[in-house]
Design a protein around this nucleic acid. Structure first.
Lengths: 338, 338
DNA sequence: ATGAAAGCGCTAACAT
DNA sequence: ATGTTAGCGCTTTCAT
C-alpha cells in the first residue's frame, strides 16, 4: 500500500527470498506452503500493496473468471425492469462464485454468425448468458456447434448443446384466463409480445389453447401485437374498443403492455376492472403500486437469472454434461385490475 | 471460420509467409502494410476465423479497454431505474469508443480503502465510473491520490483529482417549491433521500434555502427521511398527516418516494392534488403513466451517464488535465399530481 | 514495408 | 515444501 507503481510477483518473491511459484501457490491456495513462509510472504504482499495482474493470470491459466451477459443494443435496454432483474440475479450468483460480469451489447435482429462465439474465442469471457435473443438466432447455433459454455435466459430452445432456463409461459396464460372465466368473463382479448421471442410465442399459443379448451370464442381481431412495449400496446389496443362489441377482459403478455392498455381503457371513459378487466405478466416491481393494482402472472425473473448463472458456473467447473432445460414455475397474483 | 481451435497470430503469419508483426500492424492499423500483403492476410484471417486474444493483447499493450462501473451490492440495485439509466448512458458511449463495461459490485457502506484502486491495479479496468458512492468515501480519496482515472456520477465532490458529473439539485427543488407556491400552496413538507448521498443533502439544503427565501415557515417535523425508498417514504409519510394541521403539499427527493407518499395520501381518503399536492424528482420512465401523472423535476439521468463516460474516455486518451466538475441542468415537468 | 528479439506477469508441468 | 523451465499470445522497440 505504499509503492507508487506496479509491484509484481517477482518483487514479492525476491523480497521474501523464495521463488515466484511459492508466492503464486500461496495466492491461489494451490499446493503446500510452509506456514512461516506464508506469513512472511503475506506480510510483504501487504506492505508493498501487491495486487495480482488479472490479465497475466488469465492469459496463463486460460480462465478469465468473467461471465458475459448480452443486452440488447437499444437506448433503454437496462430500463426494462425485466432485463434488469435477470441481470441482478446473474450478478448476485456470479459474485458469490468469484466471477465478474461483462456487459455485451448486441443487436437482436442481426449480426455475424460468429459474433457470440468470438467473444469467447477472444478469451474475453469464460462463458455467456444470453438475454433477449430472438427465435432461431444463428449465433446461438454457432455457440452450440463450437461448444462454447452458454445458457439462454427466457428463451426456449430444445437442441443439442443448448441450455436454457425459462418459465412455463403457457401455464401462466392459462392461469390468467381461467381466473377471468371464473370471474364471469368470456369475451377475452389478447395482447402479444414480440413474437420473435419464444416466450411471446408460447404465451400466444397458450392463450389459443386454453380458450379452445374452455370452449370460448377466439376472435382473430381481438389478438393484437403489443411488441412488449407499453406505448405500442396503448396505441394498438384502441382497435379492441373501436366496435360496439368489445371484450370484457384483456390478457396481456407483460405488465408494461397492461399499463398501456389500462390507460387506453380509462381514457375511453371505461373503468378497470368493472367494464374491462386486465391482466399482465411478469409482476414487475411497480405492479402492486399501480392504481388499480395489477392482477398479473408472476414469473420469478430474478431467479431465472440466478439459475442461469448457477447453471453456467456448473458447466464451467464440471464441463458440459447433458443439456439443461429448465422451466420455472409461475403464479397468478390477483389484485385489483381483474 | 473453420478450425475448431485456437488460431493465433503466428498461424496467420506463417500461412501468409510474413512475420507476426506484420499481422499485428494490420490488425491494429498501426504502421504501414503493403496493400497486397494486407489483402492476403485478411483473406487468411477470414478463412481461419482468427480472433485476437484479448488477454494477450491487453497484457502486452497495458490497456484493457474495459471501463468498470460500480453498482451497489444489494439485491435489487439494477431494478433502480436511476442506476439503470446511468448505466445505459455509460454503455452507449463506451460501446461507441470500443470500450466494454464491467460491473463492479461494491458495498457503499464500507470496504478496504484500496478496494477501488485495486480494480485498476489488477489491470482489470482502465478506468472507473462510480455510482451510488456515499459522502466522504475514503476509497474515492485513494483513487485521487493514486491517479487512477475515474469519474463520479451524481456525487458532488470538490477536490483535487476528483472528477464528477452531477445536476443542479438545489435548483431543481427550488423549481418545485416555486411552482407549488405559484399554485397557492404554502404548507409544504419535504421528504429527503439517503442523506449520506450528496445529492440528497443538496436537495434538502436547497429546500431549506428556498423556503427561507420565500419567507415560508420551515417545520422540522415536516421534513421526513424517506431514504430514496418508496416503502420507507410510504411508512414515514404517515407522520405528516397524523396532526389535524397537515401540509397541503409534499416535495419529494425522488419519484419512487413520491409514489409512496401518494399512495399514503390516497389511503387516508385524501385526494392528490386537490387536498395535497405532491412532486417528485428524476422523472423516471413510468412517471407520466402513473395516475395521477407525476409532477416532477426531470434530471437528465441517462445523459449523466453519457457525459461521465465521455469524460472518462477523454481522460484515458489524453491524460488528466484539470479536474472536471460539471453540473447538468434540471427542468420542472408539470403533470397532474401538483 | 517488414522482421527479430525481448518482454508483459503470471502459472502449468515437471523437477528436487 | 519449494524451485526451474517454458510458455500463454500478443505488442514494443529497434533493426533492416
Amino acid at each position: 500500500m505504499s509503492k507508487e507503481h506496479k509491484v509484481t510477483i517477482a518483487d514479492i518473491a525476491r523480497e521474501a527470498g523464495v521463488s515466484a511459484m511459492t508466492v503464486s501457490r500461496l495466492l491461489n491456495g494451490k499446493g503446500p506452503v510452509a506456514k512461516e513462509t506464508a506469513e512472511r510472504i503475506n506480510e510483504i504482499i501487504e506492505r508493498l500493496g501487491y495486487q495480482p495482474n488479472f490479465l497475466a493470470r488469465s492469459l496463463s491459466s486460460k480462465k478469465s473468471m468473467i461471465i458475459g451477459v448480452t443486452i440488447p443494443r437499444i437506448e433503454h435496454a437496462l430500463l426494462d425492469n425485466y432485463i434488469a432483474q435477470i441481470l441482478s440475479g446473474v450478478t448476485n450468483i456470479a459474485l458469490k462464485n468469484n466471477y465478474r460480469i461483462m456487459l455485451l451489447p448486441f443487436n437482436p435482429e442481426e449480426g455475424d454468425r460468429n459474433e457470440f462465439v468470438n467473444w469467447h474465442r477472444s478469451k474475453m469471457v469464460d462463458g455467456l448468458i444470453l438475454l433477449k435473443t430472438l427465435h432461431r438466432d444463428e449465433r446461438i447455433a454457432a455457440l452450440a456447434e463450437q461448444h462454447v459454455p452458454f445458457v439462454l435466459a427466457n428463451h426456449k430452445y430444445y437442441a443439442d448443446g443448448v441450455n436454457f432456463i425459462d418459465v412455463n409461459n403457457a401455464k401462466g396464460i392459462a392461469l390468467a384466463v381461467e381466473y377471468l372465466v371464473a370471474k364471469g368473463h368470456s369475451e377475452i382479448a389478447f395482447v402479444t409480445g414480440d413474437l420473435r421471442e419464444t416466450n411471446a410465442l408460447d404465451r400466444l399459443n397458450g392463450f389459443k389453447k386454453v380458450m379452445q379448451k374452455l370452449g370460448l370464442p377466439l376472435r382473430e381481431d381481438w389478438i393484437i401485437n403489443g411488441q412488449f412495449n407499453r406505448e405500442i400496446a396503448y396505441r394498438e389496443s384502441a382497435k379492441l374498443f373501436a366496435d360496439k362489441k368489445r371484450p370484457d377482459a384483456v390478457v396481456c403478455s407483460d405488465d408494461y403492455m397492461a399499463i398501456g392498455v389500462i390507460n387506453r381503457i380509462k381514457e375511453l371513459g371505461l373503468s378497470v376492472p368493472d367494464d374491462v378487466a386486465v391482466t399482465g405478466f411478469d409482476d414487475i416491481e411497480i405492479a402492486g403500486f399501480l392504481r388499480p393494482a395489477l392482477t398479473t402472472v408472476r414469473q420469478p425473473i430474478e431467479n431465472i437469472g440466478r439459475v442461469a448463472a448457477e447453471t453456467l458456473i456448473k458447466i464451467l467447473n464440471e464441463g458440459i454434461k447433458k443439456p439443461v432445460h429448465r422451466l420455472l414455475n409461475v403464479k397468478l397474483i390477483p389484485r385489483e385490475s381483474a
